[in-house]
């Protein structure tokens, strides 16, 4: 994945606009943390970035391909190169954990017309499940797992095909501190191993800032901050400063 570029993104299903004129440019291999108060358009921005939602104006370019105007076949091809961890996991509830994790791999093989070696798939699935600490749960259904376990299965599925761009939407929402630390450890290992471009959204700003060297902040559908993480706490913008420091007093 060469480069991800969003220019002048508009999206307004209603008034006031959910997203209004967001421009971003993400280089390959970068890790970008996306934050902002609730209902500032973070999840929507992620969905637009990976082509699930079409913006009303503007363009999203990945590798020079405009996601808003390309054919649906080209869009699916780009999407299969993106790993996405959904906020609510979105595990396939009719499939076992192992089938969930191997699904992206099998689909890619079908699309490319390759026959997968069953033993190889099983081995790989086992390896990935062991990496997220769920090797014993391969034959369970998602409904039989706890919230943290489901999140880890979703994580294993998102990175199964070694995608060039990985998008994490709230990877630690609703999890206890130890599980959170474990998930961030997994994310870090995954990033170091693959060198993939990572976009991550989290309400846990502290953990996010220790993970991503570049931060982007959305506020009421507009880009409020885009720059290095270190400079964020001392930003001249009072909104950004208050949000990062978590202060009660301020414009927010």
């Amino acid at each position: 994945m060469q480069l991800l570029e969003v220019r002048k993104l508009h999206f307004n299903p209603a008034v006031p606009p959910v997203l209004d004129g967001v421009s971003l440019r993400i280089e390959p291999g970068q890790t970008v943390g996306l934050c902002g108060p609730g209902a500032s358009g973070k999840s929507l921005l992620l969905k637009i970035l990976c082509g699930l939602v079409r913006p009303e104006g503007g363009r999203v370019e990945i590798d020079g391909l405009d996601l808003c105007t390309c054919s649906s076949a080209a869009l699916r091809a780009v999407q299969s190169r993106i790993g996405m961890l959904f906020q609510n996991n979105a595990l396939f509830d009719s499939m076992t954990v192992a089938d969930n994790v191997s699904f992206p791999l099998r689909q890619r093989a079908i699309q490319q017309g390759i026959r997968l070696d069953e033993a190889y798939v099983r081995q790989l699935v086992h390896e990935r499940l062991r990496a997220v600490g769920l090797a014993d749960h391969a034959d369970k259904l998602p409904s039989q797992l706890s919230g943290g376990q489901r999140k880890r299965v979703a994580l294993a599925r998102a990175v199964m095909t070694r995608p060039e761009l990985i998008i994490y939407d709230e990877p630690t929402a609703g999890l206890d501190p130890v599980t959170t630390a474990r998930i961030y450890d997994l994310l870090r290992r995954e990033r170091d191993e693959t060198g993939a471009t990572v976009i991550i959204v989290s309400s846990d700003v502290e953990a996010l800032m220790s993970f991503a060297p570049r931060m982007v902040m959305l506020y009421r559908g507009c880009l409020r901050y885009d720059g290095p993480t270190d400079a964020m706490a001392n930003s001249p913008d009072p909104v950004v400063r208050q949000f990062v420091r978590g202060e009660l007093e301020g414009p927010l």
């Binding site: 990976c50 699930l52 595990l91 890619r108």
Partner: peptide, 14 residues
Amino acid sequence: VTEQVDALRMCGVE
């Protein structure tokens, strides 16, 4: 409504 269809799309599946 549980975003499983979006997950299908992200696996390159129509």
